[in-house]
C-alpha cells in the first residue's frame, strides 16, 4: 500500500544539535520554580507492572493527590496511568480529585493481538471509567510498510474511545530511525490521535529529547496546516527535574505557550514527581533536601 502522507525527512545530527542547544538553556529562579510545578502538574503517574495489585494502585492514587503535603501550593499530577483491570480501583480512589485516569489498552505493550480484541479492550477501559486511553501502534505492521493498517487501527481505536482522549504510543525505540518516528507521528495525528506518545516504558531507549523534538515538529506542522492542536507525551526515562525542565524548554520553543498545560503535554513517569519535590523542598527549606522526607508510593 502506498503511504500518501508526505512526511519531511529528518536529519538526525541536526536534530541532536538543536537538542543540545536547547539543553544549554539555563532556567533559574522564578522560572525554574514555576517550571517545576508545571512539570509536576503534567505528570501521568504510572504503574504498569505485571505485579500491580489493588493495594499498589490505591497507594499510587493517594500519592497522586498528596505529593508533598508539607510544601504548600503544589499542584496534583495530571493523571494516573494503569492497566485496564485497575481502572475501576483508580476511579474509586480518585473520586472528586480532578485527577484523570488513563488506561493502557490494545494489547499493551506489544500491540500484538487482533483488532477485535483491541477494540474490546478499549471499550472496556472507557466503560470502567478511563478518561484517557493510551494505545500502542502495531510496530510490526509499520515496519512491514503496512501504513494504512496502522492508520486504520488508530482510527478504529479512536472511534472506540468515544469521549475518552486517545494517546497513541509509537514505541519509538522500536522504530529505528527518526524518519520513521516522523512518519508514525504523522499517521497517528492524521488518524485522530489526541496525543502522541513516545514509548511504553518497556523498551529501551524510551523517551529521548531528539525523538520528542521530531514529534513536536510533526504536531507543529499539523497545527500550522489545520489549526488543530495535538498533545505530546514523552514517557519513560525522564526521572530528573533538570530533564523535565529541558523538555519544557523544548516544548516552549517548538510549540509555544499554548501547549504549556497538562491538557496538551504530559510526562509519562513514575519517579519524576519525587525528584521535582526534592528540588521544591530545597527551595522551601533553603537546603538540599533528602528522599527520606518524600513518600515513595
Amino acid at each position: 500500500m502506498v503511504l500518501l502522507i508526505q512526511s519531511p525527512t529528518i536529519d538526525q545530527v541536526g536534530v541532536e544539535e538543536r537538542v543540545a542547544r536547547l539543553m544549554t538553556r539555563s532556567i533559574k529562579k522564578e522560572s525554574e520554580l514555576e517550571g517545576l510545578k508545571l512539570a509536576l502538574n503534567m505528570i501521568d503517574l504510572t504503574t504498569l507492572e505485571g505485579k500491580d495489585t489493588v493495594g499498589k494502585v490505591k497507594q499510587m492514587c493517594y500519592k497522586a493527590q498528596h505529593l508533598a503535603d508539607d510544601i504548600a501550593g503544589l499542584p496534583t499530577v495530571a493523571a494516573v496511568c494503569v492497566y485496564v483491570n485497575h481502572v475501576k480501583t483508580a476511579k474509586r480512589a480518585l473520586v472528586n480529585s480532578g485527577i484523570k485516569i488513563a488506561s493502557v489498552a490494545t494489547a499493551f505493550p506489544s500491540g500484538n493481538s487482533s483488532r477485535k480484541v483491541k477494540i474490546e479492550e478499549t471499550k472496556m477501559a472507557v466503560a470502567n471509567g478511563a478518561d484517557e486511553v493510551d494505545m500502542v501502534i502495531s510496530r510490526g505492521e509499520f515496519l512491514q510498510g503496512n501504513y494504512n493498517f496502522v492508520f486504520d487501527e488508530i482510527a478504529a481505536i479512536k472511534e472506540a474511545c468515544g469521549p475518552a482522549r486517545l494517546k497513541v504510543i509509537l514505541e519509538t525505540g522500536e522504530l529505528s530511525t527518526l524518519d520513521n518516528v516522523r512518519k508514525a507521528s504523522d499517521i497517528a495525528i492524521h488518524a485522530g490521535a489526541d496525543f502522541i506518545k513516545t514509548s511504553t516504558g518497556k523498551i529501551q531507549p524510551a523517551a529521548t529529547m531528539p525523538v520528542t523534538l521530531v514529534m513536536l515538529q510533526a504536531i507543529k506542522d499539523h497545527y500550522d496546516a489545520t489549526g488543530i492542536m495535538v498533545g505530546m507525551k514523552p514517557a519513560g526515562g525522564i526521572s530528573t527535574s533538570k530533564s523535565a525542565l529541558n523538555y519544557l524548554v523544548m516544548l516552549y520553543e517548538t510549540l509555544g505557550e499554548k501547549w504549556m498545560t497538562n491538557e496538551w503535554f504530559r510526562f509519562g513517569a513514575s519517579s519524576l514527581a519525587n525528584d521535582i519535590i526534592l528540588q521544591l523542598g530545597k527551595e522551601k527549606y533553603g537546603a538540599y533536601y533528602s528522599n527520606n522526607y518524600i513518600s515513595k508510593d
Binding site: 538526525q12 545530527v13 541536526g14 529505528s176 530511525t177
Partner: peptide, 17 residues
Amino acid sequence: MDVQEIKTTWHPIENIG
C-alpha cells in the same frame, strides 16, 4: 597544486544503531 583550490565538504553522519 599552485593553481588548485582546496574545497572542503561537510555532511552529517547519522549514528542510529
